[in-house]
């Protein structure tokens, strides 16, 4: 699984990266997690609200910090 956390460095964006790492570790799946901070690259995903979450090239979340169970669900369905 290829996961990208989009965010320019706000508190919520950092939280989302941390949360994603924890959830991935807990699920025990193979995944690369990358933090995208370049606004130019963020825009190319069409995300106007940060933080955003991209799984395998598809935007699955934008503009909010999900709860642990919600994030788990998003990753499982992706």
């Amino acid at each position: 699984m290829e996961i990208k956390v989009l965010g320019t460095g706000c508190a919520k964006c950092k939280k989302l990266e941390e949360l994603t790492r924890n959830v991935v570790a807990e699920m025990g799946v193979e995944a690369t997690i990358e933090k995208v901070e370049d606004i130019y690259k963020i825009m190319q995903f069409g995300v106007m609200r940060t933080p955003g979450l991209v799984v395998n090239g598809k935007v699955v979340l934008s503009g909010k910090l999900p709860g642990t169970s919600e994030l788990k669900e998003l990753l499982e369905n992706a």
């Binding site: 320019t8 508190a11 963020i42 825009m43 106007m48 609200r49 940060t50 503009g63």
Partner: peptide, 14 residues
């Protein structure tokens, strides 16, 4: 519209 000031730039660009 729900808006957080940390999203001002992506929103402006969008």
């Amino acid at each position: 519209t729900p808006f957080c000031s940390c999203s001002a730039i992506p929103l402006f660009l969008g």
